[in-house]
Amino acid sequence: MDRIHFVYRSADDEVEIFINGRSLIDLAGAAELPEARRTREPGLAGSYAWLRAAVIRRQLAHFLGTPQASWFGDGDTVLLGCECGDWGCWPLTANIEVSDSMVTWSALRNGHRDWDLSSFGPFRFGRVDYDQALARLADTLTRSAEA
């Protein structure tokens, strides 16, 4: 099982995602680099920004298969946005499937590039641990909104 951790950065009002102790942006950059080199655009690999907490604060179900933001319109969930801060400008998305025992992020893809990211994921999280990580994030976001 993979491990997930959400970190709220109050200075930027953003939520960072870590999988197995590594930043999702770093993981995406490593997965995209071969395709970016192939298309002679190595500087574009991993050029993402974290999601704004203001949107996530309204509905944490975004990470439970009910996306607040989607790019392809097929139920995909935006995990990372563009460096400009707009979720829809340059997103990294995944399909999120939820069962009683597991949450799976699969079919990770970039909204503007037809890059083969088939080696990126899937990520499988135990449902109890995943729910606990979301609960900790919800608590942090609630406290930050009250401050």
Rank of each mutant, 00 (worst) to 15 (best):
R40F: 13
E41S: 02
A28E: 00
G46R: 04
A45V: 04
A49G: 15
A28F: 07
I17E: 09
S47D: 12
R22Y: 07
I25H: 03
I25G: 01
I25N: 01
S47L: 14
E14R: 10
L44K: 08
G21C: 03
G21L: 05
Q59T: 04
E14M: 05
E16L: 04
F18Q: 04
A49Y: 07
A30I: 15
E16K: 01
A28W: 03
R22A: 10
R37P: 06
V55K: 09
V55C: 09
R52W: 10
A30D: 15
A36L: 12
Q59Y: 11
A53F: 00
L24W: 05
R40A: 15
E41Y: 07
I56W: 00
D12Q: 14
Q59L: 05
A28Y: 03
A36E: 03
A53E: 01
A30P: 11
S10M: 06
V15M: 05
G29K: 02
R57F: 13
P34R: 12
R58E: 12
Y48V: 09
V15K: 01
E35N: 08
I56K: 04
L51W: 04
G21I: 13
L60W: 11
A53Q: 13
R58P: 00
A54K: 13
R38G: 11
S23H: 03
A36Y: 03
L51Q: 02
E41K: 09
L24M: 10
E32M: 02
I19K: 06
I17N: 03
I25F: 05
W50K: 07
R57P: 07
A31I: 15
I25Y: 01
N20V: 06
R22M: 12
A36I: 10
A54C: 09
I56E: 05
D12V: 10
A45S: 08
A31G: 12
A53H: 06
A36T: 08
A28N: 08
R37Y: 08
R9H: 09
Q59I: 02
F18C: 05
L27Q: 00
G43T: 04
L60I: 15
Q59S: 15
E32A: 08
I25E: 00
A31Y: 00
A11M: 11
R38D: 10
P42I: 10
D12I: 10
E16A: 07
T39D: 14
G29S: 06
T39E: 14
A11E: 13
Q59A: 11
L33Q: 06
R58S: 13
V55A: 15
A11H: 11
L51Y: 05
I56H: 02
D13E: 15
T39L: 13
R37T: 11
S10K: 07
A54Q: 10
R9S: 00
L60H: 02
R37C: 13
G21Y: 07
V55D: 09
L44C: 10
A54E: 12
N20R: 04
G21P: 06
R58F: 04
D12C: 04
F18I: 02
G21E: 12
G43R: 12
F18R: 00
A36N: 01
W50T: 10
R58Y: 05
A31L: 14
